[in-house]
Design a protein around this nucleic acid. Structure first.
Length: 300
DNA sequence: CGTATTTGACCAGCGC
DNA sequence: GCGCTGGTCAAATACG
């Protein structure tokens, strides 16, 4: 909890406002179209405000340099709390947030992210089919992204294995469950479409990676390892300068595969720093999606 | 043939 | 206690 090292895993270090202090293990980062208030209302928010008084503030920073023809003003909505107990913010589905009480939190550092890769297989959490009765399901920190995209499974630099799919109540779209293919990594993610806005993909990450991305070779900072950049390969995402539409491919299973030029090496194969200076495109990739769209005021 | 996905079944938590 | 729902498992299936 208090051992998040230098970069806050919730914000990925985006919050640089000295008045902000993040020390909880839940967080929410939503990337959405601020003109679409249905995103907020879906989570029980009214007038772009969360219903929870414990939230110190919501920042909705718009990016003004987006081309108008994209017809989408992408903004970052960050919910942060100093209370140390964000509940709903880390839970996209308000109906399911009640279980995220203090009893449900792991007391050990397992939730801090640094001990996520303990070598235990993911099934050990619940014991697989032979689940121990009375053992509570441990939830790790979660970060959610709302992404305008036509493609459900957005490439984020890690490899994921789908292990389940469920129909979601009050939603025509199923929810897919993915697990990191790294055997020592317990990070999971859920992917679903917003029932109110089918063009919005809700991606929820749970846990933190303890390894580098597969597709992104450079040495990543702590928070980048924890929460990889989210690449949006949809047509509406051309607003992001680092995306190269001509390199866009769609995988056999509907999984988007974005292949910027800098992507070619396996995890752990670090590029040397003395290679050619980064182009603006490369710089943007290094910063990741959030780094690209988070207003400068929210980051250094 | 190895790996990834699909899908029905099972389990846990929660509300009534 | 019961039903509902979310989350997970694992056998079957598909794919390269």
């Amino acid at each position: 909890m208090d051992d998040h090292n230098t970069a806050d895993p919730v914000t990925g270090g985006f919050s640089t406002d000295p008045t902000w202090t993040l020390h909880d293990d839940y967080g929410f980062f939503g990337v959405t179209d601020t003109r679409d208030s249905s995103i907020f209302s879906e989570f029980g928010w009214n007038n772009n405000q969360p219903p929870l008084p414990e939230f110190d503030r919501i920042d909705s920073g718009g990016s003004s340099d987006m081309p108008e023809e994209t017809n989408s003003t992408t903004s970052v909505v960050a919910v942060q709390s100093r209370t140390g107990s964000i509940e709903i913010a880390g839970e996209l589905n308000p109906l399911a947030s009640s279980s995220s009480n203090s009893d449900d939190r792991p007391e050990s550092s397992a939730a801090s992210g640094d001990a996520v890769c303990s070598g235990k297989p993911p099934s050990s959490e619940t014991g697989g089919k032979i689940k121990k009765k009375g053992t509570k399901r441990i939830r790790q920190q979660r970060v959610a992204f709302l992404t305008k995209s036509e493609i459900d499974h957005l490439e984020d630099g890690y490899r994921w294995r789908k292990y389940g799919q469920k129909a979601v109540k009050n939603s025509p779209f199923p929810r897919s469950y993915y697990r990191c293919t790294n055997s020592k990594c317990t990070v999971k993610k859920r992917v679903e479409r917003s029932s109110t806005d089918p063009t919005t993909v809700i991606t929820t990450y749970e846990g933190q990676h303890c390894h580098h991305t597969v597709g992104f070779p450079r040495g990543l900072s702590h928070h980048e390892v924890a929460y990889p950049r989210l690449l949006i390969p949809s047509s509406t995402s051309q607003q992001f300068s680092y995306l190269r539409p001509q390199s866009l491919q769609v995988g056999d299973h509907g999984v988007s595969r974005l292949q910027p030029q800098v992507v070619s090496r396996e995890a752990g194969d670090h590029l040397s720093n003395h290679e050619q200076p980064p182009t603006s495109f490369q710089r943007s990739v290094d910063q990741g999606l959030l780094g690209d769209i988070v207003p400068p005021i929210m980051r250094n």
